[in-house]
């Protein structure tokens, strides 16, 4: 079904692009610490939903994209995203048994893991990470996960996150 896949790739590219825009839009003052990891959330969504099409390489590419835009230490988001993707793939079979709230909690842990990895890589040359920068994006990402996944379920490629891939993965 090649045409189906094309539309899938179309929507995933568009959603990645939107997430990237949200990620790089400038905000005022210290609100920037509270910006959710939009790109990681969108990557996680596609990874969970279409595990056959999207794997670790997809997350790696998205991370590289964010690295290019953040303009320093090329490759650190690529590392953290691919590690998060690996964890997600391991958890995938469990993830769809949960409702939205437990999923949000898992997202909290995932983003926290991402921030911890980022902080430890950044220690290569700067040491000014604060506890707010570790936890704040994790909290906002967890809060935004339920509306985000509901919204993305509405995409024409649709179907619910929870049941769709149960069958696809076993094929």
């Amino acid at each position: 079904m090649p045409d189906k896949n094309y539309s899938l790739y179309f929507y995933s590219t568009i959603s990645l692009f939107m997430a990237l825009l949200l990620q790089i839009t400038p905000v005022f003052g210290s609100t920037v610490y509270w910006r959710p990891q939009f790109l990681l959330l969108v990557v996680s969504y596609w990874l969970l939903k279409k595990q056959r099409q999207y794997g670790i390489a997809f997350a790696w590419l998205a991370g590289m994209l964010l690295d290019i835009f953040s303009g320093q230490m090329l490759g650190r988001y690529a590392i953290t995203f691919s590690f998060c993707a690996y964890i997600l793939i391991l958890l995938n079979k469990r993830f769809y048994h949960f409702g939205l709230l437990p999923q949000a909690f898992l997202v909290f842990l995932l983003v926290l893991l991402n921030q911890l990895l980022l902080a430890s890589i950044s220690l290569l040359y700067r040491t000014d990470w604060s506890i707010v920068m570790l936890i704040a994006p994790a909290i906002t990402s967890a809060l935004i996960w339920p509306p985000l996944s509901l919204l993305m379920n509405r995409l024409p490629k649709g179907g619910r996150l929870n049941q769709d891939n149960l069958f696809e993965n076993q094929g």
Partner: peptide, 23 residues
């Protein structure tokens, strides 16, 4: 599963080398 781990490690190593070269 092991291939996922290998793939993750492989890609991370590439990114890590890039990171070191860049910094």
């Amino acid at each position: 599963s092991p291939s996922y781990a290998r793939r993750m490690l492989f890609l991370s190593v590439i990114a890590g080398v890039l990171l070191l070269v860049d910094t």
